[in-house]
Amino acid sequence: MKKYLLSLLIVLLFVAPLFCQAAGQKEKRLENFSFAQLKYPGGNWDPNPLAWEGLYPFLTGVTNIHPEKERRVLELSNMEIFEHSFIVISGDSGFPPFTEGEEQKLRWFFDGGGICFIDDATGILNSGFDKSIRRELKKIFPTQELNKIPFEHAIFYAFHLKPAVTGTQEAAAYLEGIEYNNQTTVIYSRNDLLGVWATDRLGNPVKKCTPGGELQRLEAKKLAVNILMYGLTGTYKLDAMHRNNIINKLKYKTLLNGKE
């Protein structure tokens, strides 16, 4: 027995430094992404408080995105929004109009090159949140409209190949967006996309996905990752060198599914 314990100790002595080194490298790693969510007065700014906890391990385990572990909650009353270039706005009810100062900050955020993902967590069309957010976007971009984002857009190829537009609900089979500063600066989902990530302490999903169940959840997860990847890499996947690869994979997917 003593012999075994001694052997284990010797092994641990050799292996421990390796773990320490690995831990040290993790520590040194520069986070290149933070999940920054806007907290606005009135309404419910955080309908999926557990979403980031579900999304974080997926991003770190599957992609080369190195996010900060903690979610950042931003308010428009200070300058913190300008520390980020990708923010999330979510909600499930109407909210009062932003003040002129808050609108101005958002406008400058977009001027600087920021991108915003908006998620209507109601998963129904023409919800109170939908009306409020459209009203605010109209004030920030008086000359621009929310338009359907075509399926040729870089978002649909940023990491996963052409995921379906869905969430916990399927209110709209398309994303909407606003083009500004040579990029899609606003990406709007009405399907409660972040809701697919929310899990309880045992890892079970908090919300059911209807009507497609777990397959729908997987598609929604792919789309969410693609949106974050677009926030970091822009239209990289539309470069000419990716074209053949994407076309071939699309053909293959069509063969598998029998449709596209």
Partner: peptide, 29 residues
């Protein structure tokens, strides 16, 4: 790795019509 520096620099480079950019990003470790 995918990061904001790339996205912002790409915008700067794309704004110059004399530049042609080819990129490789390590999207997956």
């Amino acid at each position: 790795s995918p990061n904001y520096e790339y996205r912002f620099l790409r915008q700067v480079l794309n704004n110059n019509p004399n530049y042609e950019v080819v990129t490789f990003i390590i999207l997956r470790g």
